[in-house]
Design a protein around this nucleic acid. Structure first.
Lengths: 237, 237
DNA sequence: CGAGAGCTTGAGAATTCTCAAAGTACGTGG
DNA sequence: CCACGTACTTTGAGAATTCTCAAGCTCTCG
């Protein structure tokens, strides 16, 4: 449990101190707002189970889905600097959370060097992901983005030890579209296309990955497309 | 100078310690590589003068310009977690840099609470920018992106105390295009369009902002376009 | 002054979006 | 337990932005 909630890699005694001092748990249900954009920053959160989405209303008034938070993942670190949250966070299904008060966490970290190092590592990891992964998916086609999204979810489930060849998407097509900056219609069309290529099976919000190598090909290599299309002409016609 | 190189907001004595222990300076020239993608992480850098660009070769082998680094800005913090740099950094013109060895910085920060806090703040600030600003510019049109880019450069120059109503762009159109994920031809066409609208004056790589409110309108509001177009039909015909 | 990189301009092509309508799932109340 | 309403999803057709390719121009630097 401490592994889920605080993947901090601390020494045993330090973990105990951390949990006793700064951690509380809470349960949220689909649609519950956990954090409101612009609210004062007091806590960081860790997802123990369930899934959340972070959304932001931009300067032009449009809402964007920034990310989805899976079990074992943290959110809120971006708000340390500004002192307020840059996103709203909402539960997509039933979610169990850890909450850590940042002021207590910071105080404790000045006493525990391993905690301090770990905090810097966590921030840096988020920074790395947000700067590097963003670029890796930047100029991709809609097809590559969606394939990358499904594969990314798969990888994150696997990394947490879940058997993830099939999983539930608790978010709407519109949420996925907003996250990838595509139109919901495009998501629909591409999911169907992937299914026709036998790469995935999609039944409402349940995804099953039928051909992982093909999915990985879709992410990186546009060239696959033609050959798969040829293979499937017979089946579709 | 310490203000430029280390905008850390530390107490006086702490600044002195930091500078003496971990800081060295170096000068680079246009085209010099400062950091190579994938190289072992040892240092973070601060730009004292000049401009750099961070680039990354993605998994598909395409190079992207991640960001440009202006005087007073840091780079390298993303690499703490992975232990290696995710980007190559190259000087765009003559650049003076501060270099800080991270292991020494970390050691010092466990002795200086204000430095520790400041490190967390800096990481969080980068994270905030990379997560929030990325979203704010995500689904914008090419026009909004480019206007936003010019306005962002302007703001960063102003924040550092420069008189920035006109400034030099040391990067190529191709670099700008790559940074905004547009084609270089699109950059050319839009710069010309902005000039025709009398929003900026562009002469090769020198930009002059002629109408700041109009530029800000371009960033946020697509509606302006029509009216400006109408105003300029006479002039263009 | 010449060579090469960088920039501009044009025309046609392609991806993705928008709008509209029909179909489907889910939760609530009868 | 079924019926209904609402929200979500799918599908289609046409429209729009941005890209690609190609050619000519220009600036810089040796």
């Amino acid at each position: 449990m401490s592994d889920l909630c605080l993947p901090l890699g601390l020494e045993q005694g330090d973990i105990a101190q951390l949990e006793q001092i700064v951690t509380t748990s809470s349960v949220k249900h689909a649609g519950d707002v956990i954090v409101r954009q612009g609210a004062e920053f007091t806590r960081i959160f860790a997802v123990k189970s369930g899934m959340c989405k972070s959304t932001r209303v931009d300067l032009a008034g449009n809402e964007h889905v920034q990310n989805f938070h899976l079990p074992g993942e943290l959110f809120g670190l971006h708000a340390i600097y500004a002192g307020k949250y840059g996103f709203s966070v909402e539960a997509l299904n039933t979610v169990v959370l850890c909450e850590l008060k940042y002021d207590e966490l910071q105080k404790l970290s000045s006493e525990l060097p391993s905690l301090q190092r770990q905090l810097l590592n966590l921030l840096s990891r988020d920074l790395y992901h947000s700067q590097v992964n963003a670029l890796d998916h930047f100029d991709q086609s809609a097809e590559q983005k969606l394939a990358g999204f499904i594969h990314n979810l798969y990888s994150r489930f696997v990394a947490r030890g879940y058997e993830a060849s099939s999983f539930h998407l608790p978010m709407s097509r519109k949420d996925i579209a907003s996250h990838l900056e595509l139109a919901p219609e495009t998501i629909s069309r591409l999911l169907k296309k992937f299914q026709q290529k036998q790469v995935i099976q999609i039944d409402n919000r349940l995804v099953e990955i039928k051909d992982l190598p093909a999915l990985e090909q879709l992410v990186h290599c546009h060239a696959l497309e033609a050959s798969v299309d040829v293979q499937n002409i017979g089946k579709l016609a």
